[in-house]
Amino acid sequence: MNTLNTFLFVVFPYVAGIVFVVGVTYRYRRTAFTVSSLSSQFLEGDKLFWGSVPFHIGLLAVFFGHLLAFLLPQATLAWNSVPVRLIILEVSAFVFGLSLLFGLLSLLWRRLTNPRVRVVTSRMDIAIELLLLAQVVLGCWVALGFRWGSSWFAADLTPYLWSLLALSPETDAVFALPLVIRLHIAGAFLILFMVPFTRLAHFVVAPLHYLFRPYQVVIWNWDRKAVRNPKEPWSKARPKNN
């Protein structure tokens, strides 16, 4: 049992992290063509609305919730010190979790039943959706069964995660957690591990830079002004895409 725990919470997180970084970088640089959200809205759009929107909004909220407790544990604990605030946080987080669950279920249902969407479904798509589903179900279970998650996450798990980052894993707190929670944690690392091999890679290229660029894009493949400079015997001007 201890060996398995050590593997899941000490070895595997590093493996997952390295695979994620190296895999995503490799995929982005070498096979950029495969990096796409692979939207199927074009083939089926109405059911997608009831899947994609609650799924993504729930996912973003839950993800940033976890991130918040990870980055600002003291602030989270301080917020939770007033019971009303704790309840507000927990309930709204759970609602987002339900939205995520509902979205994921309708996406899965749509993917399995719509003949057009089936055509653009790979085995990996099903696998990753099932993995996400398991993770979400575990997450909701944890939220209901082990109160209050936001507090003990900040108190117990945040130090563990930071210790992973600091390359000196402190695992006592994790080993002592109930099985459901440990599964949820291992699931998170598994998802991280899977990102480079699945369509999840599209979240890495979320187009936030759109907010900061001018609308029109003109690309000059060749700086003709430099070409035309007769004073320069050896042109140093390189093509932009070279």
Partner: peptide, 19 residues
């Protein structure tokens, strides 16, 4: 000259060739 597709692309994948 003022392509809407270029302006709308969040990824900056669409461009007009200068040449």
């Amino acid at each position: 000259l003022n392509p809407a597709c270029v302006a709308a692309c969040p990824s900056q994948a669409i461009y007009k060739r200068g040449e």
